[in-house]
């Protein structure tokens, strides 16, 4: 779970700030005040009233001194955003909690999704709170992962067909869950999506279906897909 734990370190306050010039300090303070939202270089110029060339020079210095970083903005790749190094880009910049630079952070999604499925498998049926608590209790994560974020993973697992979403009836396996509450269950092997009748034959997904006729150029008798399928 090392990759999972590596995600999103907690911001650590910087105690030792290297010496800065007056303008550098003004710009640095402004950037820091914007926390995980960061600030656009043009906005820095406007808000501080410092000339663009100077702002750019100061930014370079701040980056070299490892006080500020440039972070990508997935919405607008050309718009340079600066942020104090101790902050992680907000969801507006990354594209979402489980995203990095607009790309899904597979290194976190994969292992934590597996963890969710694992804990749910052990408990049988559970609400998202149950799953989130169980995940936190494993102490495999060293970052705050609110229940809402676990819900995102759980919902994606439902769409993937790995978990079932259901409502508690209040008895039987649901006895510990309030009636009507949404809960989740692992999909058993037999219930995994079985290949449908249409998807199991070559014509089902054939790109030539619309032009395939008995006496046409493409026909069931000269079909290569059938040839492969019936190659006993």
């Amino acid at each position: 779970m090392s990759s999972a734990t590596a995600k999103r370190k907690r911001p650590e306050p910087k105690s030792l700030t290297p010496p800065l010039t007056g303008q550098e300090k003004v710009i640095y303070e402004l950037i820091r005040s914007r926390r995980e939202e960061g600030i656009w270089s043009k906005d820095i110029k406007q808000e501080t009233d410092i000339a663009e060339a100077v702002v750019n020079k100061c930014l370079k210095v701040l980056i070299v001194k490892k006080l500020v970083k440039e972070v990508p903005n997935y919405q607008n790749k050309g718009k340079k955003i600066y942020m104090a190094v101790e902050y992680q880009p907000s969801e507006a910049l990354t594209g979402g909690f489980w995203y990095e630079n607009g790309k899904p952070d597979e290194e976190s999604i994969e292992p934590i999704s597996k963890l969710c499925t694992g804990v749910l498998h052990n408990m049988g049926v559970g609400t998202v709170e149950d799953i989130a608590n169980a995940v936190r209790n494993t102490r495999a994560l060293n970052f705050d992962c609110p229940t809402m974020r676990i819900l995102q993973l759980v919902k994606a697992l439902v769409l993937k067909g790995q978990l079932l979403e259901m409502r508690s009836t209040g008895y039987g396996e649901f006895s510990s869950i309030p009636v009507g509450a949404v809960c989740y269950k692992c999909v058993t092997k037999t219930a995994l999506p079985k290949a449908g009748a249409f998807a199991s034959i070559p014509c089902g997904v054939c790109p030539h279906l619309s032009i395939c006729t008995p006496d046409g150029l493409v026909s069931p008798s000269n079909c290569v897909y059938y040839g492969k399928w019936l190659d006993f």
Binding site: A156, L159, K160, G161, P193, K194, A195, G196, A197, F198, A199, G204, V205
Partner: peptide, 22 residues
């Protein structure tokens, strides 16, 4: 739905399957 989902999975892959279900 299951029949169509399985068709989507085979024709366009796992992402399409999820999109269709959503």
């Amino acid at each position: 739905n299951e029949e169509v989902e399985s068709f989507m999975l085979k024709k366009y892959g796992g992402v399409a399957y999820m999109i269709f279900r959503l």
